[in-house]
Structures are given as C-alpha cells and as structure tokens.
C-alpha cells in the first residue's frame, strides 16, 4: 500500500463518517449503550496510542527517554499548562535526557 492510498482512503472514510451523521435519522444512535461505547472507544484508542508511542520500538517494548517525557507532560497537563507548551516541554525533556546519557 503506498502512502497516498492510505491517506486518501482514511480521509474519505473520516469525511463519510461526518456526512453520515447528517443523513441518518437520530433515533438509530439514541441508545445509551451505543453513545457510551463510542465515547469510550475514543478514550481506549488514544490511551493505546500513547502506550505504543511511549514504549514501542517496532515490535519490542523499550523503556527510554520517552517515558520520563510523558510523565512530565502528564504533570504539566495536571497544572493546566497549555497544549503546545506541554508538547514542546516533552520533546525538550526527551532530547535533554538523550543528550546527557
């Protein structure tokens, strides 16, 4: 699969999902279990992506500078520091650790 195939396919699907919400009758999605599961699916995918980004190295699990960087990011979010500042700080922590080790 080349990169354009991946990008165009995923983009068309995401756009179609948005459009579908304006086409289908609302009743089909009113069930609380469906709404709850959809919200939790977002949470689960984001959490799994964080884990893989932080600990994954191809098909291995590897603890390195990314983990302390994530811990710092969590602390900063808890202190309500803005998104961009946190992302830059996390990058800085990882870069610093790699520079000194």
């Amino acid at each position: 699969m080349n990169a354009w195939t991946v990008i165009i396919t995923a983009s068309v699907i995401c756009l179609a999902l948005k459009v579908s919400g304006y086409l289908i009758p609302a009743r089909a999605f009113e069930h609380p279990t469906v709404a709850r599961t959809a919200n939790l699916l977002t949470v689960a995918l984001l959490a799994a992506l964080i884990a893989v980004q932080t600990l994954g190295a191809g098909q291995a699990v590897q603890v390195d500078a990314r983990l302390p960087a994530l811990v710092v990011a969590a602390g900063l979010y808890a202190l309500r520091v803005p998104f961009v500042v946190v992302v830059i700080a996390a990058a800085g922590v990882a870069a610093l650790i790699r520079a000194v080790t």
Partner: peptide
C-alpha cells in the same frame, strides 16, 4: 529522536485524552 519529537507525539495524544479522563 534527537529533538525528542517522538516523545512529543505521545504528549500530543495525552493532551487529546486528558479532558476525557
């Protein structure tokens, strides 16, 4: 990795997740 940008990706995901926790 030299600039820690791989760690920035995880931090960005965490920012999207945080308000939902």
């Amino acid at each position: 990795s030299a600039y820690g940008l791989d760690a920035a990706a995880a931090a960005a995901f965490l920012g999207l997740l945080w308000p939902r926790l």
